[in-house]
């Protein structure tokens, strides 16, 4: 049982939860995720870790209410508990000092798992430009925290209500055209990651994506999370969640994410 000690609404359907999990808070690194279960009959669902405080023994999760389980989790209040939280799972992000700019782009709640990567990239000494994208102004999350660790932040909205009107790819391409970009990190909806991958492939820039597929156990046992990467079937939970974007079969992944719809 893991107690919720802080809750904040980023928007009507997006909630930030600070949860007690001392061992996970101590062990986790950028890129890791946890599996969470809410209620005795609850599903096991993967959630990426947005932040952690080892001294307080807490991890921060950002949850968007889209299905049965995420709605249940978003409805929890301070003092309530998650039935289970296990992790940290997956492989940590490979952080190094690049010879060139690192562009970190996040779509919607994808900004939450992106934040620890932005932080780590900056702390490794990189020039970091972050591109945040959402449908509208209200859905842009964690902007202040992202600014704190970025040399520049570009905001893109579908309706132009914040930053510039346009898709995330427009923001990324602008940076690519004006400076030497060594790596792109993209986290967000599958379709967004697919188009970022197509763009950076054109420029031959190494690109990393973090996949959020269907999982059951999250420990390499069930294979529900399998995706094709470079023509080979890989398991997101133990081989990922981060992969070379140019090798990921996004169309198959999007098809598989609808398996239980």
């Amino acid at each position: 049982m893991n107690r919720i000690i802080e809750k904040e609404y980023f928007s009507e359907n997006v909630v930030k939860l600070v949860v007690e999990a001392p061992e996970v808070a101590r062990a986790r690194k950028a890129g890791h995720f946890v599996i969470v279960r809410c209620g005795e009959g609850g599903e096991r669902i993967p959630l990426t870790i947005a932040d952690a405080d080892a001294s307080k023994g807490t991890v921060t999760l950002v949850v968007q209410a889209v299905g049965v389980s995420t709605r249940k989790i978003c409805a929890l209040g301070v003092g309530d508990t998650l039935t289970d939280l296990v992790g940290p799972l997956g492989r940590a992000t490979d952080i190094c000092l690049h010879n060139g700019t690192v562009v970190c782009c996040g779509g919607g709640v994808g900004v939450a798992p992106l934040l620890p990567i932005i932080k780590a990239m900056k702390e490794a000494g990189n020039r970091v430009i972050s591109v945040l994208a959402a449908r509208n102004k209200d859905l842009i999350i964690l902007e202040d925290q992202v600014r704190e660790y970025s040399d520049e932040v570009i905001i893109m909205t579908d309706d132009g209500s914040a930053g510039r009107q346009g898709l995330v790819t427009a923001g990324v391409e602008e940076v690519i055209q004006r400076e030497n970009v060594a790596e792109v990190v993209a986290i967000g909806p599958a379709i967004m990651m697919k188009f970022v991958a197509l763009l950076t492939k054109k420029y031959n820039i190494p690109t990393m994506v973090s996949l959020n597929t269907i999982m059951v156990d999250g420990t390499g046992m069930c294979g529900a999370c399998r995706v094709k990467v470079g023509g080979k079937t890989r398991f997101v939970c133990v081989d990922g969640p981060e992969f070379d974007a140019h090798q990921v079969d996004f169309d198959e992944m999007m098809m598989r994410m609808k398996a239980y719809n």
Binding site: M221, G223, A224, V227, K228, R256, K258, A259
Partner: peptide, 19 residues
């Protein structure tokens, strides 16, 4: 035991094919 084995045949990642 961990990772389930698959056969590596075409269509094995379609929805409704599982370990």
């Amino acid at each position: 035991a961990g990772l389930p084995k698959f056969m590596g045949i075409p269509g094995e990642n379609y929805c409704g094919v599982l370990s």
